[in-house]
């Protein structure tokens, strides 16, 4: 038994093992509390699909050696902006979604390029600088959301007639267009087949990219920058590609998130969202230097199910306060802390 435990820790790492055990405990409690297990699983599936691409966005940057993208919120803002533009153009349904995606990509590429110029000057400190870069851009864009001259009455404050609302409802626009694509319902619960399919396609594309020549160069640059530079790889270029790809996936990710959630969240909403994505991929077994698509998928399943199931279970046990939120804070930041200590000191 002891041996098995040790081997499990060695193979999967502490976060994955502990989180899986915690998840199992929650599930058993849910059974005892006679909660709707299928409903819980479907909620978990919706949440997994919702956050999927945001977590996937962590892969290229970790692989290219810049560490988890703590400034992913900047990419998310690009996506949110594109979503607003698509509404301003008065589009509805699937076209609205795809126009939003289409617009978000060039914006995210430009922003990613600018950001990586900064990032390539601070090698070794990307995480600290990135966190505060993200924070400051989010708060700068708070002013932006108030001043950008959007006109659509759906988005602008009803009183005063200028400045975007905190949350923009997508009903009648592209609310759940991907989620409902497959249209499978299980005992009254929708399974977001379309979003999961979209995630699978994105995963496949990233996987394909990592096997391309550029992807291989990126892996080499991230794994050992000195060796890569000696063998003729332009490390800065690979880091730039990784960051841009991460920002683009972040932008796509937030649009997919919004269509599933039903609202575009503006202002300070993206502030802490990168942490959520980072902890998901770390739970999946990634480190701040290594990540794979497998880490994304397993991390997403474990972390998001944990969040989805902890809410009703903990509230069922203890209705006071907001304990499930507390659980999220502890798990999320604990996992990141663990990854930081495990990476050890800088050389």
């Amino acid at each position: 038994m002891n041996n098995l435990w040790k081997r499990a820790i060695e193979r999967f790492g502490h976060p994955k093992v502990y989180c899986t055990l915690f998840l199992a405990l929650l599930l058993i409690t849910a059974v005892f509390l006679k909660q709707n297990i299928i409903g819980l699983i479907c909620t978990a599936l919706v949440r997994i699909a919702q956050n999927s691409i945001l977590v996937l966005a962590m892969v290229p940057c970790i692989i290219s050696g810049t560490g988890p993208n703590f400034a992913l919120s900047i990419g998310m803002i690009c996506g949110a902006l594109a979503g607003c533009i698509s509404i301003e153009m008065n589009l509805v349904g699937m076209p609205a979604l795809f126009v939003a995606l289409f617009i978000s990509i060039p914006i995210a590429i430009i922003v990613g390029l600018v950001y990586s110029v900064l990032q390539n000057r601070v090698k070794g400190d990307e995480m600290t600088v990135g966190t505060y870069m993200g924070y400051s851009i989010v708060s700068l864009m708070c002013i932006g959301w108030l001043l950008i001259p959007f006109k659509s009455p759906e988005m602008v404050w009803a009183i005063g007639g200028k400045g975007l609302r905190n949350t923009i409802a997508l009903s009648g626009r592209f609310d759940k267009v991907l989620d409902k694509l497959g249209n499978i319902t299980l005992m009254g619960n929708v399974i977001p087949v379309g979003t999961l399919l979209f995630f699978a396609i994105c995963c496949y594309l990233v996987w394909l990219f990592l096997r391309s020549k550029t992807g291989a160069a990126m892996l080499a640059a991230g794994d050992n920058p000195r060796f890569a530079a000696a063998s003729g790889i332009n490390v800065d270029r690979q880091r730039t590609i990784g960051t841009v790809l991460s920002m683009v996936l972040g932008a796509i990710g937030i649009i997919v998130y919004s269509q599933s959630y039903g609202f575009i969240q503006l202002y300070t909403a993206p502030l802490y969202m990168p942490f959520l994505a980072i902890s998901a991929i770390l739970i999946g077994g990634a480190s701040i230097k290594k990540a794979s698509i497998g880490n994304v998928i397993s991390g997403l399943i474990i972390f998001q199910s944990l969040l989805a199931i902890s809410l009703p279970v903990i509230n069922g046990l203890l209705p006071t306060g907001n304990l499930s939120e507390v659980v999220r804070i502890i798990v999320q930041n604990g996992v990141i802390l663990y990854a930081l200590t495990k990476a050890g000191g800088a050389e």
Partner: peptide, 21 residues
């Protein structure tokens, strides 16, 4: 002491973690 060279990001996340506890 375990994360020399990354003190600031560690102390930031540690602050959030402690808030949860």
């Amino acid at each position: 002491n375990k994360t020399k060279g990354r003190e600031m990001i560690t102390s930031l996340i540690l602050g959030y973690f402690a808030n949860g506890v």
